[in-house]
Design a binder for these strands. Structure first.
Lengths: 218, 218
DNA sequence: CACCGTATCGTACAATGTACGAAAGCACTA
DNA sequence: TAGTGCTTTCGTACATTGTACGATACGGTG
């Protein structure tokens, strides 16, 4: 039992505590490390106890995705749209790189939670209030979110976990085509990606500016 | 046994046959329906037999993702870059919507196969040959792929499977905020998304053109 | 005390990936 | 024919997962 030692009072379970702990566990051990059993253990409880607060694991995943959305900067309706969209995009990317596992969950989550809905609503409202037509709003929203999610997806796919440099990761792949196939990848790899100061994350700003420059209220 | 009936000759297993069958199964039953057991059954074989051709399930997933990449139109180095990028983007989106499960696998696949590498190489080569600087190439590539993957991700997340209209799917969500919260989502939903002819997929062209218009070789 | 709704948990089962090693098929030789 | 050694197939078994079902503990009210 978790509450064996005298001072270790047992905090009662709750839906919030379950989701919060699930979020922390996913951050620590990745989404694969988030199982009902490990979660229960982390909570000082037993697997089946969680099901009193949650119908199934799907709901847990829905819940922590909504928690993640809750961390994203909420655009302020009425403010200048370009600045708000810029800040929102940066915030979203930052949050998603803090919770990399969430990117893979964006697909398949068909039950948006309140934080997710509030976020979408504020974003749409900011555009509309800035004079965007309905159609322009739909266009802008689809474009911005596609870019943000897609960039996050690529960033997660890069196996750059921790201190290891890009070179270490790229080396084994490069061997695969040192034979002269894929010369253009070779060129980019040596000329850009493996250069000392290169950080793929910096590419985000370029695309973001390009997109915002191209958007118009109608 | 599969080869019980007289005429049903047993086709020998092979890595190619395993991967091809896995791809077909994922298309038919979704990625969750692709288990070692169902795959073996589909092949008229037994679970453990597959492991002679494949180290583990990860390799199967890597393999079918590479098969998917193999279906994407390969840009022709030397041709006009804008047209080639346009065709490639459309092709990629079309392929990913034909294999929706693949979008979720793009993350986590860290072992690109030959078709994937060839695709990337041809894309980079097309840009470089059209006069793009190394940096401009990196920018363009990150931007285009982010948009394409992200759009595919959003498209997959929409639960629009089959004949059911957008209205049917949106209705239960709308109830959630019929109470007056989320007014801007309400507005977009009724004014755009639920309109008769609306198709989210059409948004793809808008963003694609905007991005291509914004790209420059240096 | 009895009673009852709330909250916790023990046991058990089905589905999954796969380790281990046996067996079957096949080609070739003595 | 019988033996030898490789390639290919597969049977059994196990650990891990989500969770169904029903029992138990708990805390307040009569």
């Amino acid at each position: 039992m978790a509450a064996r030692t005298g001072t270790n009072e047992r905090i009662p379970l709750s839906r919030e505590r379950v989701l919060q702990c699930a979020l922390a566990l996913a951050d620590r051990d990745g989404i694969a490390g988030l199982t009902i059993r490990t979660l229960a253990q982390e909570l000082g409880s037993r697997p089946m106890s969680l099901y009193y607060y949650v119908a199934n694991k799907e709901q847990i995943l829905d819940g922590i995705v909504d928690l993640v959305f809750g961390e994203v900067h909420l655009p302020v309706i009425g403010n200048a749209w370009r600045e708000e969209m810029l800040v929102r995009a940066r915030s979203m990317r930052e949050v998603l790189s803090r919770h990399p596992w969430a990117v893979g969950l964006l697909e398949s989550r068909t039950h948006p939670g309140p934080a997710t809905l509030r976020h979408h609503d504020a974003t749409l409202g900011t555009l509309r209030s800035a004079g965007f037509t309905l159609r322009a709003t739909a266009h802008a929203y689809a474009l911005l979110d596609s870019y943000i999610y897609g960039f996050a997806l690529q960033e997660v796919a890069l196996p750059l976990s921790g201190a290891e440099s890009v070179a270490d990761v790229a080396a084994p792949i490069m061997e695969q085509f040192a034979g002269g196939q894929y010369p253009w990848m070779m060129e980019i790899a040596t000329g850009i990606v493996m250069q000392p100061g290169y950080d793929f994350g910096d590419e985000f700003e370029y695309g973001l500016e390009l997109i915002l420059d191209g958007l118009h209220p109608h």
